[in-house]
């Protein structure tokens, strides 16, 4: 299975890894579901109050109808199907959901989409241009700034912010200014080297 369906795919409808996983998990969940009467829920009553807003995501204007409770992270992943941005802790501690909003790096899990009408958002999906990786993406590959890769989109978006803010002058400075991004694999030396390398190139 490949992450990029355009590389090579079997005949028939293209299915992304995520869709495949969802379909499989759905079947398992259905099989495991108790009878409907037993599924008492304590979830709050469904709120029909929605907010309509426009956001420019990776250069494309999007008009969206969102629940005021939805974070930018959830809108990116669930509504726009941009699943490159990851949900790690969902409480602003790990940095996996880092994106740029109006050019500044933020954690999208703690940002309500309904408060960002008109915002310009850049995610990991917007970095590759015409099949060419962004220099910081290239640097992460060259310096092995990842192991499992889950934190990588957040690391790269945060790295862009770090470089743009002028805080990539030394390994020590990069460590301090990238401390909002946790890597549980411990690929920190490669991450610091990649950010330093890309900062030197730009």
């Amino acid at each position: 299975m490949t992450e990029n369906p355009s590389e090579s795919h079997p005949p028939g409808p293209i299915m992304s890894r995520r869709e495949t996983l969802q379909a499989t998990a759905g079947a398992v969940a259905l099989a495991a579901l108790p009878p409907l009467s037993a599924t008492a829920t304590s979830a709050p009553a469904l709120d029909t109050n929605t907010v309509t807003l426009t956001m420019t995501v990776n250069g494309r204007a999007q008009t969206l109808s969102v629940d005021p409770r939805q974070s930018i992270l959830d809108v990116l992943r669930e509504t726009l199907n941009l699943t490159g941005t990851k949900k790690g802790c969902n409480q602003g501690a790990c940095g996996a959901c880092t994106v740029l909003v109006d050019g500044r790096r933020i954690v999208s899990c703690l940002t309500l989409a309904s408060m960002h009408d008109g915002a310009q958002i850049e995610t990991i999906e917007g970095l590759e241009k015409d099949g060419v990786l962004h220099p910081l993406q290239e640097a992460f590959v060259e310096h092995e700034g990842l192991q499992c890769g889950f934190c990588t989109p957040g690391q790269i978006m945060s790295g862009l912010g770090c470089i743009a803010e002028g805080h990539a002058g030394s390994p020590e400075e990069i460590q301090f200014w990238m401390s909002g991004n946790i890597c549980r694999c411990g690929a920190y030396p490669g991450i610091v080297a990649a950010v330093a390398d890309a900062a030197g190139r730009t």
């Binding site: 940095g95 790096r105 933020i106 945060s158 803010e165 805080h167 200014w177 990238m178 909002g180 991004n181």
Partner: peptide
């Protein structure tokens, strides 16, 4: 205080 992302917010 906090992280660069949180300080931006």
């Amino acid at each position: 205080g906090a992280s660069p992302q949180l300080r931006n917010m």
